[in-house]
């Protein structure tokens, strides 16, 4: 875990101040509409810190609160983090748990994807994971707080920024993941499986199942190169 890696991650993830800020703002406006107080909404975004888990538990909001169903929904929507965490162990297994476990509090899809891309270019550095996580968390929690502090309403550019910027950012990292022509079949499999899962099962499972199917095709190759 180096300071250089931390700085590199922090700078690289600065666009997420905008995209996560917009997404957090939309989430905050929704909480506000639900009648949730500012302190609770900010705490929600800080502790749960997951757009999918927050959106799904929001849709289940009722009197009384269905706690068990909400917990099961959180486990289901965030199961991809088990795979990401296990993969991070391969990268940072030598690092003391007292350094890694707090960092994992801020683990997000985008910071994991960025960390993998950076590890391919510069070698594994948990500082990068922490550095890239911070703008994302500030954007998300700050956006939620802004919804209460400013007289704002959700509009189209805001919704587009929240929905699209993370995807676009990860798309810009895609070339770093291309190994050779043998990447083609696994990637096509991932894309088709993700498409089918999002269309016919549930969009929150598309990354895990789509990526898993593509990885199984990758494993049929004799070597990993």
């Amino acid at each position: 875990m180096t300071a250089a890696g931390f700085r590199r991650g922090l700078v690289a993830a600065l666009p997420f101040l905008l995209s996560n800020g917009a997404a957090g703002l939309v989430m905050g406006l929704t909480y506000k509409g639900l009648g949730l107080g500012a302190e609770h909404a900010i705490l929600f975004s800080l502790l749960v810190y997951s757009a999918t888990a927050q959106a799904i538990t929001l849709s289940m909001w009722a009197h009384p609160l269905p706690v068990v169903a909400m917990v099961v929904a959180c486990i289901a929507t965030n199961s991809r983090y088990l795979l990401m965490g296990a993969h991070l162990r391969q990268l940072f297994g030598g690092l003391a748990p007292r350094k890694m476990l707090p960092t994992l509090f801020l683990l997000a899809d985008a910071s994991w994807l960025m960390t993998n891309s950076d590890a391919d270019r510069n070698g594994p550095d948990a500082g990068y994971l922490l550095g890239s996580s911070i703008p994302m968390a500030i954007g998300w929690v700050g956006g939620t707080a802004l919804a209460y502090a400013a007289p704002l309403a959700a509009n189209e550019p805001l919704r587009l920024a929240a929905a699209l910027l993370p995807t676009m950012f990860i798309a810009t990292l895609l070339p770093s993941q291309w190994k050779n022509v043998r990447s083609l079949w696994p990637w096509l499999t991932s894309a088709v499986a993700a498409l089918l899962v999002a269309r016919f099962v549930d969009p929150s499972w598309s990354m895990l199942i789509g990526g898993g199917c593509g990885t199984l095709v990758s494993m049929m190759e004799r070597s990993d190169g």
Binding site: R80, L83, H87, D109, L113, N116, S117, T167, I170, L173, L174, Q177, W178, K179, S183, P186, W187, T189, S190, A191, A193, A194, S206, M207, L208, I209, G210, G211, G212, C213, G214, T215, S218
Partner: peptide
């Protein structure tokens, strides 16, 4: 897994 998860994401 990473490259394939990128695509699915």
């Amino acid at each position: 897994a990473p490259g394939n998860l990128f695509i699915a994401f």
